[in-house]
Computed example of a mutant assay.
Amino acid sequence: MKKITIILILLLTQLGFSQSTADFFTKSDAFFKSYVVNGKVKYNAIKKDPVALNELLDMAATITVSKSEPKTYQAFYINAYNLAVIKGIVTKYPVKSPLNIKGFFDKTTYNLGGKVTTLNDLENKILRKNFPNEARFHFALVCAGLGCPPIIPEAYKPSVLGKQLQRQTVKALNNPSFIRVKGKKVQLSQIFEWYKEDFTRNGSEIDYVNTFRKEKIPSGAKVSYYPYDWSLNRVK
């Protein structure tokens, strides 16, 4: 009888875990669909009615995800990062740039997945450290600046995460404003400079970019980095 009780408790726990993550992804999807337009965020509208955002972050605080289910883990924390960025902006809105908010990336904390973390630690210690070969994170994590690849009007979901990351990476690396090619010279986003190790594990930065490009960049192209645009990615 005791053994049956333990099994029932484990099954109910797993059911609750599954249900909470499913609810989180469903409600996150509805939120992003409502407040993201053409890669930009309706911060003003969220500021006026923050109920949905606050509900999602409250949910994210109580959800537990495991690295043993990597797609769920990654999708949860990508969404959590993007929601936390939006929360950080909305809290101080109106603001022209995330850099105008002191400690935006390294001091302000959020309770996500039962852990108190900053945006920097979420990106570097929770995602990049645990999945060092997944550089496509950089095209999904949106820092609120226009220099970032655009935020998408949907949640990242475990069942289609690979396709979503691939789509966003291909989109960014074929965008002439993001990868600026002129003859044998190429200007890359400073994302490639800041996280160089992520993009050069199996070759050069050009090798990485060409993996996703339709029109390949010459292997001997001279690489430089254009200044990052930290202007707020807001819907005007």
Rank of each mutant, 00 (worst) to 15 (best):
L83A: 06
V41L: 07
G113A: 08
F24E: 08
D58G: 15
F31S: 05
K47H: 14
S20Y: 09
A144I: 02
Y225V: 03
G147R: 09
Y35N: 07
K3V: 13
R201S: 15
P153W: 04
F137R: 07
L83P: 06
L188F: 11
K184P: 07
P132Y: 06
D106L: 00
Y73R: 04
G39D: 04
D29F: 04
I89G: 00
P218V: 00
N120I: 00
R201K: 15
V186M: 04
I7M: 12
Y110V: 03
D29L: 04
V41I: 11
I46E: 05
S34P: 08
A22Y: 14
P227L: 07
Y93R: 03
A144P: 00
A84I: 05
V95Q: 02
V186L: 04
T211V: 04
I46W: 07
K216T: 11
I4N: 15
N82R: 02
K216S: 06
I4D: 12
I101D: 00
Y225K: 07
N54T: 15
V51S: 15
V36C: 09
S189T: 07
S97W: 00
P158W: 01
K67T: 06
P176T: 14
F17K: 12
S224L: 08
I7C: 09
L11V: 10
I151R: 02
S68D: 11
D58Q: 14
L10M: 12
P94L: 01
G145S: 10
Y110Q: 02
G220H: 06
E69A: 04
Y81M: 01
V160A: 09
A22I: 07
R201Q: 15
S177V: 08
K47T: 12
F131I: 07
E215I: 15
V181M: 09
I89L: 00
Q190S: 10
T13S: 12
L83W: 02
F199I: 12
A221L: 08
T62C: 10
V142D: 05
D121M: 00
K27D: 14
K71N: 10
Y226A: 10
K33D: 08
A75T: 10
S20R: 10
D106K: 00
Y77A: 01
Q168F: 10
V85A: 01
K102P: 00
Y110C: 03
K182E: 13
V65R: 01
K40L: 01
A22M: 15
L161E: 04
P149S: 08
T109E: 13
R128Y: 09
G88K: 01
F131V: 04
L53D: 11
V142C: 12
V186S: 06
F32W: 03
I78P: 05
L119Y: 01
K67Y: 02
N130F: 00
T13G: 08
Q19M: 13
N175E: 10
G88P: 07
P176R: 14
L127Y: 05
V170M: 12
S28T: 15
N44T: 14
I191G: 07
V65Q: 02
K184A: 12
F32M: 06
V181W: 05
K171I: 09
N175G: 12
G88F: 03
T26V: 08
